[in-house]
Simulated assay, not measured.
Amino acid sequence: MTPIHAPDVLISEVGPRDGLQSVSGTMSTAAKCLWIDALAAAGLREIEVASFVPPKLLPQMADAAQVVQHALRHTHITVMALVPNLRGAETALRSGARKITLPISASQAHCLANVRKTREDMVAELRAVVALRDAIAPGVPVEAAISTAFGCTLQGQVPEDDVLRLAVACAEAGASDVGLSDTTGMGNPAQTTRLFKRLFQEIGERTGAAHMHNTRGLGLANCLAAYEVGVRTFDSSLGGLGGCPYAPGASGNVVTEDLVFMFEAMGVSTGIDWPTLMAAREPLKAGLPGETLYGMTPEAGLPKGWRG
């Protein structure tokens, strides 16, 4: 039997969560499900489909449990959900989420604004989430996402030593992996290289995803820098939707379409089918009429003779 070649990198699509929580409109549950179906058809293997937060805070995520249940029909994808606390984690796990992510800010100011807790409180919350996972859903990965790891619009510069200390604390609290997020788009390639190198030195294989924003146009460059030091999981959002309601000035995520093109053009396989990925923009447009979608490659098209 010929072995099946696993793609070289994992593109984790965060649009249905990070993208939708950052727009003013609310996509209907039916439209979300159609969009997730289209993303799954394109070959995406991990999709963050919802955030389990109080509906009064994020009405766009009020149907989180329904969306998770629908996404679970796609047995080839990891259905991921963001949870801000133990209560959200329990609801997500009981809904069937196959991976949960807990955001913990390296910036104390952003942590207090985002989840109303200190960094130390959030590490304790992570420890409780891991214990709950062990009790009711053994084997489900719990990811710690270190937000504002590259700078914060509320606090300003975030010392790299603070980022690394927090990452180590999260690993010691039981996180399956620890990723770094450029929540405010303040990072640059040299900084990305340095931080991820240090993260690998501190926690090794538990180094997780690079979650980059394109606020200042450096999203792809930062992803490439992370790749070159060994990162193999990258968060991105179809059409570049996304941001953070609690980080003034933070704008969209790295565009999935551009990220896939970059890697495939380099000969780095993503496992994603380009025409089907482009087709996934249509249910997004239909579900959020009038919302601006981004992406250089969708506008320019593929080069003549493309073989990616």
Rank of each mutant, 00 (worst) to 15 (best):
73 R>N: 14
40 A>V: 14
50 A>W: 03
61 M>D: 10
82 L>E: 07
69 Q>D: 13
62 A>T: 00
111 C>D: 12
79 V>H: 00
103 P>D: 12
77 I>K: 05
98 R>M: 04
75 T>N: 11
115 V>C: 04
85 N>T: 09
101 T>A: 09
89 A>M: 03
102 L>S: 12
94 R>H: 14
114 N>I: 11
90 E>I: 01
60 Q>V: 03
84 P>H: 01
76 H>Q: 15
50 A>G: 00
105 S>N: 02
71 A>C: 05
116 R>Y: 09
46 E>G: 06
87 R>L: 08
72 L>Y: 07
94 R>I: 02
73 R>G: 13
90 E>D: 07
46 E>T: 09
59 P>S: 12
51 S>I: 15
71 A>N: 05
41 A>I: 04
67 V>Q: 00
56 K>S: 13
60 Q>E: 09
44 L>G: 03
100 I>Y: 02
42 A>T: 08
70 H>I: 08
108 Q>L: 14
110 H>K: 08
74 H>C: 11
64 A>K: 03
106 A>C: 13
51 S>K: 06
91 T>N: 07
53 V>I: 14
89 A>R: 08
56 K>C: 09
78 T>P: 10
113 A>E: 11
114 N>T: 08
54 P>D: 09
46 E>W: 01
38 A>N: 08
98 R>L: 10
116 R>W: 10
90 E>G: 00
90 E>A: 04
79 V>T: 01
53 V>E: 03
108 Q>I: 13
102 L>P: 13
40 A>Q: 13
69 Q>N: 11
83 V>S: 04
45 R>N: 03
47 I>V: 09
47 I>M: 00
110 H>M: 11
42 A>N: 10
106 A>F: 08
108 Q>P: 10
68 V>M: 00
101 T>Q: 11
49 V>C: 03
63 D>A: 06
111 C>N: 15
66 Q>C: 04
52 F>K: 08
58 L>I: 15
88 G>Y: 07
99 K>I: 01
102 L>Y: 07
55 P>S: 12
68 V>Q: 01
106 A>T: 09
86 L>D: 02
45 R>G: 01
95 S>M: 10
86 L>S: 02
41 A>N: 11
94 R>A: 07
60 Q>S: 03
89 A>E: 03
